[in-house]
Design a binder for these strands. Structure first.
Lengths: 152, 152
DNA sequence: AATCAGTTGCAATCAAGTTGCAATAAGGAG
DNA sequence: CTCCTTATTGCAACTTGATTGCAACTGATT
């Protein structure tokens, strides 16, 4: 499940775009491609250091910014349920999804629906805007937290 | 179009909740209720100072935080098209809308659709989560900017 | 192997938002 | 209308997330 388990699509794409594939970029890309969770810059930095990679905060921000500009990753706020950092995930144009966060326990659930694509094409049709990306974040209370305690 | 043009619903609600209605809160509430645009903390502070109100950054943040907690205003990121500040707008439960931002000129368009309500009830039904608020922000290119210049 | 523009790391800086606490003022009691 | 209590404000210091300028380094092409 790590670095070489599958070909890095991002690395390929980046190479094609004439961008240098440095050790740091390779590490960050592998991390995002293999991660099951939403990562934020300090996560990435911490993981890099744990694995003995040389990596600076600045590089993390710059690389994430670049990947975002290229449309390869998606930036999330996750409703700022904890801190104000941004989170990042691999972009998958064919599988738009919603992030549903519980304001009590902080758990993030991903939710898919064909309504998202419908909404997107409605926007295109009615406004004439060219949609690049959509961010749908929902603040909610999960069943467990609702059951446990009415307030707090 | 200003302060007294209509009764402040927010001020009433706040009064009912046993919260002190100070000069600063009154000003901020009036401002948000009468504003046609999305305001961020430094806008509010600047406007207060221009009108000779005594107001501190801290108070702006605290008051916005309180109104947000009470569910009376909505917090937006507007995709961070300019800076990382948060924007605020009056909450209107019956009129959920999307914020559509042009990544080139920065213009924000509001867009309504019955698909939003459908999406919300679908989430409730399928996940069992109790939805408190939804934030839908779309990065796009407006017709004008697309026409003018293919890249940049 | 040599080259060199693209990248990185570091230190300094910026910007947004928060905290602790003394001074102030809202609004109910008398 | 004045007093009193306590919530609220303003200020200064601080924290956190992100950015910038620049010298040193390195990937990849010759």
């Amino acid at each position: 499940m790590s670095t070489l388990s599958r070909q890095s699509t991002l690395a390929d794409k980046i190479g094609e775009m004439g961008v240098r594939l440095t050790k740091q970029r390779r590490f960050l890309i592998d991390l995002i491609e293999s991660s099951q969770t939403h990562l934020h810059p300090s996560d990435i930095l911490k993981l890099a250091r744990q694995r003995g990679e040389k990596m600076d905060r600045t590089t993390v921000y710059r690389t994430l910014g670049m990947l975002k500009e290229m449309g390869l990753i998606e930036e999330l706020d996750l409703l700022h349920l904890s801190g104000h950092e941004h989170y990042y995930e691999l972009r998958d144009k064919n599988k738009r999804h919603i992030h549903l966060g519980c304001v009590k326990c902080g758990k993030i659930l991903e939710f898919r629906s064909r309504l998202i694509e419908q909404l997107e094409s409605e926007i295109r049709k009615e406004t004439g805007y060219d949609v690049l990306s959509m961010r749908i974040e929902v603040a909610a209370i999960c069943r467990k937290c609702r059951g446990e305690n009415g307030d707090e």
